[in-house]
């Protein structure tokens, strides 16, 4: 199997990494959801922790 076949040249100016932007935005959305999830699990799901 070859990965070197059927490649087209794309100039620096012609390449707009929109897919990368979409993936990074998706990552930020996931991060925000995880933060909210942490809040529910850690603060609302547990009793107060008393040390000492």
């Amino acid at each position: 199997m070859s990965t070197e076949t059927a490649k087209k040249e794309i100039d620096h100016e012609d390449f707009d990494p929109k897919g990368t932007l979409a993936l990074i935005l998706l990552y930020f959305v996931i991060l925000a959801i995880l933060w909210i999830f942490m809040y529910f699990i850690e603060f609302l799901g547990n009793d107060l922790t008393v040390i000492g």
Binding site: P17, T20, A22
Partner: peptide, 25 residues
């Protein structure tokens, strides 16, 4: 790094004929 590396992968994928917002994956 996340931006640069993913953008480099996207560039490779589009050269290989990938299209779309996520379809290039």
């Amino acid at each position: 790094t996340a931006f640069t590396v993913v953008a480099s992968m996207e560039y490779g994928a589009r050269r290989r004929g990938g299209t779309g917002l996520f379809g290039w994956l």
